[in-house]
Design a protein around this nucleic acid. Structure first.
Lengths: 220, 220
DNA sequence: GGCATTATCCCCCCTCTGGGGGATTTATAA
DNA sequence: TTATAAATCCCCCAGAGGGGGGATAATGCC
């Protein structure tokens, strides 16, 4: 009897974890060798289990699936990664592929299909949910290389981060200038740059993005 | 040996259906007597199975969970209904309760907790996820005078809440006015009142408070 | 009937903000 | 050496935003 192919599954929802497990165990050639409810947990399991494939939820608190994919592929390029998601947003798909994911599957996948997809990926071929490929092709046609540049990791400088966190406190430009001992104009300059990097046009939107992407945090 | 308590589970995602089933079957006193991937399917199963409880996904194509709850309770008032959802939106909670749901549970519920909740509901007690009760209490303050007034405790009106959530989206006054079909001046008026109730002086601070006190939420 | 609340809209005033130009210094990478 | 990027500061200007007054109609409460 052949040894079963080891898979690690990662999702912050226990229900989905259960579902994936019982789905995968339907296939005699596969086994769930590990379960994790966060990317961090998953990364810790890797060296001990050394699975052939990791099934990752895309959206999770803390390190998300895309970032986790990047980290996994950095250390274990041979481990296959499939991202599971609710979002057919082309932004995520492209980021996922860049991060090195071998599969991108919507959560409304049918029972048997997921197993087929797993085997496809294990054979070394990539799989992207047909439901999302349409959108990608459409967008690639319309905006040649804009997409890759557009949302490609807005990396803020130290100063910009400092100003951003002050911004999220609800401070005015003048107050920010005073607290970090800068000229008003300097603060404005930095803000202009931040807005450009975020592709927004006012402080409220910037705050929203900063909090959503966990670039800055509340003091709770 | 006692007969097991029959449960029907309904979700349009096969993975979640699997997860719920294997979760529920962990409990010896319960059994999944039926599975449906839509409300319509579920309604057809009811007369044949006559379960004690139905676990319904809130968001489904076609008839959603709330509407399905209403239909189920109309014909079978004794069947318990628990709604499963990703959304801690108070709108849905209140609608669900009005529709007659006995439970309202977020999908990130822990393994064992779901079983406890099922038993709680089977005993005739209602269960609402603690994560959402905060918002409900907040809004009940507006309708009933039991807890209200006293000190500067800001209780916002419906309109103000609506504007606040738009504010937190990063919209400008003009955009808010357009989306909810109001005059710019009206929006400004409401904002003035919100600022007073929050005791702040600009939108950024208002957003911060709204998010911190969980009056409005991100879409995560 | 009065009273309070809410929701709607209007005016004025002035500050703040966002976006468009810059410039200079310093450090770092090519 | 020469770019390149980051951080600092400056000017200008239109328009958005905040704070102060209102007004009117609808509702519900005592």
């Amino acid at each position: 009897m052949k040894p079963k192919t080891k898979i690690i599954i990662v999702d912050d929802h226990a229900i989905i974890l259960e579902g994936l497990k019982s789905l995968i165990e339907l296939d005699d050639s596969l086994t769930v060798a590990g379960e994790a409810s966060s990317s961090m947990e998953c990364l810790k399991l890797l060296p001990a289990i050394l699975p052939k494939l990791v099934l990752l939820d895309l959206k999770m608190p803390g390190i998300d699936g895309i970032e986790a994919t990047r980290l996994i592929k950095q250390r274990y390029p041979n481990i296959k990664v499939i991202l599971l998601t609710n979002y057919d947003d082309e932004e995520y798909v492209i980021e996922s592929i860049k991060a090195g994911a071998d599969g991108y599957v919507l959560k409304d996948v049918k029972k048997g299909d997921l197993l087929k997809i797993i085997h496809t990926v294990l054979k070394g071929r990539a799989f992207i949910d047909p439901a999302v490929t349409k959108k990608i092709f459409y967008n690639l046609k319309n905006s040649s290389n804009l997409v890759s540049e557009h949302k490609g990791r807005h990396s803020l400088t130290e100063r910009e981060l400092e100003i951003l966190s002050n911004l999220a406190e609800g401070k005015s430009n003048k107050e920010i200038a005073q607290t970090i001992h800068l000229s008003l104009e300097t603060v404005k300059s930095h803000l202009k740059n931040i807005y450009q990097k975020f592709n927004v046009h006012n402080r409220a939107q910037a705050i929203k993005i900063a909090l959503q992407e966990e670039i800055v945090h509340f003091s709770r």
